[in-house]
Amino acid sequence: MAAVVGERMLELVVARRHARWAADRGGVEYGRGHYPVMVALHVALIAGIPAEVALGHREFVSALGWPALAGVVLANAGRWWCVHCLGPQWNTRVIIVPGLPLVGRGPYRWLRHPNYAVVFTEGIALPLVYGAWVTALLFTSANAALMAVRLRVENRALALAT
């Protein structure tokens, strides 16, 4: 969990740096209203896992925990592949710099929004490392509703930019 929290902090540092880069180039943010909900949901995921483990007396189950951990590691590798491919255009917010082309390399060759597949995978796998299946279910359900909003915002913003 400490590694995941550290990774999230690093993500926010990178996102802030990229937001400044985008702002310097006339970047426009879209969908600000859903961003606090997204942050709260991800904080709830991180907080929900140890809470469920403690309250539900969950124990590590090797047959589930190790494959789930592999899923977390692969998801994070996928996340940073997305960050690398998007370069300074990557952000936790939806910020579009006018005139920049869409990225079509790396995982973006196959998926329009590969990072959301990463979030989906991690949202299931991370809690299951600890046997926190209720947290996995609640986060995944809430995240699906949030992603419906986020994808509409992002697709609209990308359509305006191209």
Rank of each mutant, 00 (worst) to 15 (best):
A3L: 15
E7C: 13
M9C: 14
L10G: 12
L10R: 13
L10Y: 15
L10Q: 11
L10N: 11
E11F: 10
L12S: 13
L12Y: 15
L12P: 03
V13K: 11
V14R: 12
A15H: 08
A15G: 07
R16M: 06
R17T: 10
H18A: 05
A19P: 00
A19T: 09
A19W: 05
R20I: 03
W21L: 09
D24Y: 01
R25V: 02
G26E: 02
V28Y: 09
Y30L: 05
G31P: 09
G33T: 06
H34C: 04
Y35P: 00
Y35F: 15
V37K: 08
M38N: 14
V39Q: 13
V39W: 15
V39I: 15
A40L: 14
A40H: 03
L41C: 09
H42A: 06
H42N: 11
H42D: 01
H42S: 06
H42R: 06
V43W: 14
V43Q: 05
A47I: 08
G48E: 00
A51V: 10
A54R: 02
L55R: 02
G56Y: 06
G56D: 11
G56T: 08
R58V: 02
R58M: 02
F60C: 10
A63P: 00
L64Q: 03
G65F: 07
W66R: 04
W66H: 08
L69D: 07
A70I: 13
A70G: 13
A70M: 10
V72Y: 10
A75T: 08
A75G: 14
A75P: 07
N76T: 07
A77E: 12
W80M: 12
C82I: 10
V83I: 15
H84Y: 15
P88T: 12
W90M: 08
W90T: 09
T92D: 08
R93I: 00
P98N: 07
P98C: 06
L100Q: 10
L100D: 03
P101V: 03
P101F: 01
L102R: 13
G106A: 10
Y108T: 01
Y108F: 09
L111Q: 01
R112E: 00
H113T: 04
H113K: 06
Y116V: 03
A117S: 09
A117D: 00
V118P: 08
F120H: 05
T121I: 05
T121H: 01
T121F: 04
E122F: 10
I124K: 00
L126Q: 05
P127G: 04
P127N: 05
P127R: 05
L128T: 00
Y130F: 15
G131Q: 00
A132E: 01
W133C: 02
W133P: 01
W133Q: 01
V134K: 09
T135Q: 04
T135M: 07
A136S: 11
A136G: 08
A136C: 08
L137T: 12
L138M: 08
L138Q: 02
F139G: 11
T140F: 12
S141R: 11
A142G: 14
A142M: 14
A142K: 09
A142R: 12
N143G: 07
V149L: 14
V149Y: 13
R150Y: 11
R150N: 11
R150D: 10
L151R: 14
V153I: 15
V153T: 15
R156A: 15
A159C: 03
A161F: 01
